[in-house]
């Protein structure tokens, strides 16, 4: 694999990764790279056609993995992971957990940073 920061030409491994999303490159929901999810009951019981990645993605989400981990562990580019996860959110199979976003109030932001700080100090 290329070390980070280096550009590599898209090789055969990356042939049309957006075929997985029928060519869509924009997620319908805004998903921060660090976002984790809660799998809803429908997500736990849904069944998927052969070759559909949704089942594996939902398993990762159930294990509290983030958008970044779904991309890394499924070996799909970040943008593809976002589109597929966005679809599962839209379908009601996933709900995003809290992250800092534009909608976060300054109190919530402070609280999250304070919790992070005490967590880091206790490491």
């Amino acid at each position: 694999m290329a070390p980070d920061g280096r550009e590599v030409a898209a090789g055969p491994r990356l042939v049309r990764p957006y075929a997985l999303t029928s060519g869509r490159t924009e997620s319908v929901v805004d998903l921060p790279i660090e976002a984790t999810f809660e799998v809803s009951p429908s997500g736990r019981t849904a069944t998927w056609p052969e070759g559909d990645l949704s089942g594996q993605i939902l398993d990762l989400c159930a294990a509290k993995e983030s958008v970044a981990e779904v991309s890394a562990k499924m070996h799909i580019p970040l943008g593809v992971a976002r589109v597929l996860l966005g679809d599962l959110v839209t379908a009601g199979h996933l709900k995003t957990r809290t992250t800092i976003s534009e909608n976060t109030t300054s109190d919530e932001r402070r609280e999250l940073i304070e919790r992070t700080l005490s967590g880091l100090r206790a490491l």
Binding site: D4, E7, R115
Partner: peptide, 23 residues
């Protein structure tokens, strides 16, 4: 040109309900 930009990341579970990612 389509190129790939790679990013390494790690995680630290700071509490049962709080995870910190490092990118």
């Amino acid at each position: 040109h389509t190129t790939t930009v790679a990013m390494d990341f790690g995680r630290i579970t700071l509490a049962e309900n709080l995870v910190l990612y490092l990118f």
